[in-house]
């Protein structure tokens, strides 16, 4: 049985791309279109890995990432960030939120900046899942 991978992205093309990469490499993709849906899916589907976008309407990837990484139940689920936002900007925004009284969060297991090749995404998933 393949591992479950949750893809959270508002862009349908990106979801389709990630979904195809996952299917081609024998994983079971689960899809969500924003942070809110993503959180629901994490609770319900208990995925083995999350591929998360940063800029999304409603709940952004920055907030969802914090919530998951500060939640005992979910903090060990590995997350690959996949975004047009540079890694530096993402880390800085997390740092700012921590300084404003949030709990410290670890860096993501992997950070991929768009555009990403299908093979690179597949390799990264493999590496993160061990």
């Amino acid at each position: 049985m393949g591992k479950r991978v949750l893809v959270v992205d508002d862009d349908p093309d990106v979801r389709l791309f990630s979904q195809t990469v996952l299917e081609e490499n024998g994983y079971l993709p689960v899809l969500a279109t924003n942070g809110e849906e993503g959180e629901e899916a994490v609770k319900k589907e208990k995925p083995d890995l999350i591929i998360l976008d940063v800029l999304m309407p409603r709940e952004s990837g920055i907030r969802l990432y914090r919530r998951l990484k500060t939640n005992k139940k979910f903090k060990d689920i590995p997350i690959i960030m996949l975004s047009g936002i540079a890694e530096k900007s993402f880390l800085r925004s997390q740092k700012v939120l921590t300084e404003f009284g949030g709990d410290p969060v670890p860096e993501p297991e992997a950070y991929l900046e768009k555009p990403v090749d299908g093979d690179v995404l597949a390799d990264t998933i493999k590496k993160v899942l061990g």
Binding site: D13, V14, L55, G84, P115, V116, G118
Partner: peptide, 17 residues
């Protein structure tokens, strides 16, 4: 740059598919 990155990702995604 953000917009362009998204577009490029779309091209890569499309060609992967």
């Amino acid at each position: 740059a953000h917009g362009v990155k998204n577009i490029l990702h779309g091209f890569k995604g499309g060609s992967y598919l």
